[in-house]
Amino acid sequence: MIWPAINAVYLSFTSTNLLNLSEQTLIGLDNFRAMLADPVFYTALVNSLWWTFGAVFFQLLFGMIGALALNQNIKFRGLIRGLVLLPWATPSVLIALMWMWILDPNLGIANRMLGFIGIGAQPWLSDPGTALPTLIFIDVWFGIPFFAVMILAALQSVPHELLEAARIDGANAWNTFWRVVLPLILPAVLITTTLRLIWTANFFDLILILTNGGPANASLTVPLYAYQTAYRGMDFGLGAALAVAQAAFLAILVVLYMRQIRKSDIA
């Protein structure tokens, strides 16, 4: 199972054309040199950082709030839990086309609504300044339910006695959450956030369909660039190098995470 990943690392040191694998040659660090000399790589790297951390931060924040809300004894809880889950369970191709249609600058409902309440039309995906934030917004919308469900599950392991005790001690809701609930759900939140950061960094379906990295590379991320290089430019080695470079960044996250849990692991 680990083989495909090892293979990707190997490819990054080769010149590879998928259509003609017999001419594959080892070229050492040439791909990485080409990558570092390419200004577009740095644009993509900065975009990737915004995309990954921006999207996951808001997903986590709203997912946490959502999980706390869904954990209350509310009416129609089952139905509501099911309904708010929907974005997560919708294929990204549909999410992308749905939002493309909503945000369409000429015919979309979003700008018409903004018109009604007196705010002018927004360029959304068509301005280099707003394209990436708009994509992040859509990804947040898409990703909140994932965090909500994971945190909701984690909340179940908080013993009721502790909440009761905190209440009797006169702690307010905020203190109870911060001092009692959060430490207990932290392991689940940490692994969920770590993996979500990795997945988000590698996820480019939405961007591919909605802007294809545009306008003028304003929403180009590293994996999208890797994909374009490998499958459009037919330079699989360089594409793999881009992916490996990003994987190295992400590996730092994994190491940080492993260190963190080893510290708190009471074993």
Binding site: D104, P105, P123, S126, P215
Partner: peptide, 22 residues
């Protein structure tokens, strides 16, 4: 050109044309 034309693909140019905005 139409607002957002910088991103327009096939779907947008055709619907703008049908709608009479292009």
């Amino acid at each position: 050109t139409n607002p957002g034309a910088i991103n327009d693909g096939y779907a947008q140019i055709t619907s703008n044309f049908e709608a009479g905005t292009a």
